[in-house]
């Protein structure tokens, strides 16, 4: 069996004169949580829509479970649970009707699990979805995305605009899904502490390009903030190989450094500098300095 759930190769997409995605290559392996990070308008939703077959690939290719999602929507969408950014449900339906309606499409629908979630989320099955609060609507969408126990759970900005209680529900759902062997979660977010808590792998998307894609631990290990003390004072930051950002004055300069530690020590030694302070960088900091740089 192919162990790549999503395989996107050199995908580019243009809307009018706006380049939404450019030469995106992304591989999401089976199992685990994949976090897609990017500022607003970086192309996260566009990328996700390609995975779901709502956009065709202008150039490059998209393959989900080994299928083309545009040509084979039944095969692909049947194995995906998706919660969109807008969290839209037809307003004229009642909660029970939405559930009954959606159930008809998924052979693997778990009615027991659905009613368990209905109770857990304190949803009234007789209520019209139009009159639900934003949080309750999100819970309905989450229920619809989870109840058929999808192989791949796709959540687009799952917690934006929601209160902490509902965010917790959603994040718990992610944890549960990934705890089951072989099930994969792809979620996009700009709340980086969530990503840092949950993701195994992350990709940073900026202006339609993937600028970083790796395992979260590797990413966290390869960025450091170090403060070096130099013998001589200078007005400009002494150039350090591998540094991507520098701040400071006089004898002490603080760098954001990318690379492994051994190299850093050697580089510092060659500059006659002493490492006086060193802290690991949070995902937040890594994101900000990468986006600023590119």
């Amino acid at each position: 069996m192919n162990d790549l759930v999503i395989d996107i190769k050199n995908l580019s997409r243009r809307f009018g004169d706006k380049q939404a995605l450019q030469d995106v290559t992304l591989r999401v392996p089976r199992g685990g949580v994949f976090g897609l990070i990017g500022s607003n308008g970086a192309g996260k939703t566009t990328l996700i829509k390609h995975v779901l077959g709502s956009h065709y690939a202008q150039s490059g290719s998209v393959s989900v479970f080994g299928f083309d999602p545009v040509a084979d929507p039944v095969e692909v969408l049947g194995r995906i649970g998706y919660m969109s950014e807008d969290r839209e449900v037809p307003g004229w339906m009642r909660v029970q009707e939405v559930i009954d309606f959606t159930r008809a499409f998924y052979p693997g629908w778990d009615s027991g699990y659905a009613s368990e979630l209905l109770e857990l989320f304190e949803l009234d099955p007789k209520q019209k979805t139009r009159s639900l609060s934003r949080g309750q609507t999100a819970r309905v969408c989450l229920l619809l995305a989870l109840a058929h126990r999808p192989e791949l759970l796709v959540l687009d900005e799952p917690s934006s605009g929601l209160d902490p209680v509902i965010r917790r529900d959603i994040l718990t759902a992610i944890v549960r899904t990934t705890a089951d062997e072989g099930r994969t979660v792809l979620f996009s977010s700009h709340l980086l502490d969530e990503v840092q808590r949950l993701a195994d792998r992350v990709a940073i998307l900026n202006c339609g390009r993937i600028i970083l894609s790796d395992e979260l631990d590797t990413v966290l290990d390869s960025f450091h903030r170090v403060t070096l003390r130099f013998d001589g004072s200078s007005d400009l930051a002494p150039s350090l190989v591998g540094a991507i950002e520098s701040k400071g004055h006089g004898h002490e300069w603080t760098y954001v450094y990318r690379g492994d530690r051994e190299q850093l020590i050697r580089a510092a030694k060659s500059l006659n500098a002493q490492i006086v302070h060193e802290v690991p960088l949070s995902l937040d900091d890594i994101f900000v300095c990468n986006v600023q740089r590119s």
Partner: peptide, 22 residues
């Protein structure tokens, strides 16, 4: 008086119901 749950035999039936009601 809303009825309990509704059983659709196939996705197509479900969509037809949707279109009709919507």
């Amino acid at each position: 008086f809303a009825s309990g749950s509704r059983q659709f035999r196939s996705p197509m039936e479900s969509i037809a119901w949707y279109n009709f009601r919507a």
